[in-house]
Nucleic acid binder design. Structure first.
Lengths: 194, 194
DNA sequence: ATTAGATATTGACCATGGTCATTTTTGGTG
DNA sequence: CACCAAAAATGACCATGGTCAATATCTAAT
């Protein structure tokens, strides 16, 4: 019994991803149509859905790859020493996540998965974030009364909150770093307790 | 020039909402089809979209109404005095928000709006939450070094985070209140600073 | 080189959300 | 009551994501 991935599979997948990037470039995420992707890739529609479970699956790959690149940059830097430092380090990721409503929506939808087998690239980057942030928190510069992992999850929560509020007409008065600042100050370097 | 809302408008809208509730009852949110709603309401499809901007708009109303009811209950209670107390008060809302993936997704998508004019029922309940939580935070039982409003936004962020992780295969090991506990302890009653 | 079975591709087809020009109903006015 | 303009309802139609039985292609074994 053969059970190999054929070479053309990788080629076709690459063609689809390239075509998709091109379409996003030209029409933006809201203008992305599977028909158009398939047309440019020179494949049939069915091929698309043999490679990706659905349109979200494609977006997951495109956006996940971008996020992975940003995380590479972040990982190359030294551990942030202050909250301001942390925000500076976070901003590339935060700006990307909040760059478009369509992007943010996909990221939120795919940041976790109901089953292990459909964990996609974005969900993987969230695990990477978690690991990286946990590592960053292992310093006396930030509060020591709770585990670094908990602090890391909190950072993720506040990043999402800040971006979400920034998309909201009632709350988009503040710039992203200005919104993130108070959250993270309060979370990571709390003042005197009551 | 007449410029009034006709009586039948309200009737039709009520029929649509009733029909929708019925369909959700029978098939759940994932099984909700506009065709089915319209059929049961005895109207044409176009009528549906004259009353709601899109399917999400209908869900916004259904879910927003539920959340409003829960907030009524919460508002009737006295101000929570401890984190555990707070969690108990929050749980009805949290359980509802996390009851189904489909419900959570709509809530997240509609918790804010890009333009004032398309703020829907769910977005309104998020403002209500914010006001209520801010009020709850006006007590020396919780940390005093940051504004109650900031604490309130943090509570919202952690509620969303807890529910999101609970839907994720990699993280759904903890029960919701057990996940929320550490977050809110750390957020509202931080230990000795570094 | 042939063949068999696994793997990949195809495109007609379906399901469903959403549109809009047309028709019907409403309620105020002379 | 008859009339009219605004408001509401209609349903054929469109756009687009997704399916699947049929077909083509690959690869390994002989």
């Amino acid at each position: 019994m053969t059970n190999t991935v054929q070479k053309r599979t990788l080629k076709t997948r690459a063609k689809l991803l390239d075509a998709a990037r091109q379409v996003v470039e030209e029409m933006g995420y809201p203008g992305l149509r599977t028909e158009e992707v398939v047309k440019r890739a020179g494949t049939a529609k069915g091929t698309f859905f043999a490679h990706f479970p659905d349109k979200d699956g494609l977006l997951d790959h495109l956006i996940g790859a971008d996020m992975d690149g940003i995380l590479d940059q972040m990982q190359a830097k030294t551990r942030p020493q202050t909250v301001q430092d942390l925000i500076d380090s976070l901003m590339p990721l935060v700006r990307y996540m909040g760059s478009e409503r369509a992007v943010f929506d996909v990221i939120i939808r795919r940041s976790g998965a109901a089953a292990i087998e459909d964990i996609g690239p974005i969900a993987v980057t969230f695990e990477r974030q978690f690991t990286l942030f946990s590592e960053w928190m292992r310093t006396p510069r930030f509060r020591q009364d709770v585990a670094p992992e908990l602090l890391a999850e909190g950072i993720q929560a506040f990043v999402v909150q800040a971006i979400a509020l920034n998309f909201c007409a009632l709350h988009n008065t503040l710039d992203l770093p200005d919104r993130l600042g108070p959250y993270l100050e309060a979370w990571l370097t709390p003042g005197p307790p009551t």
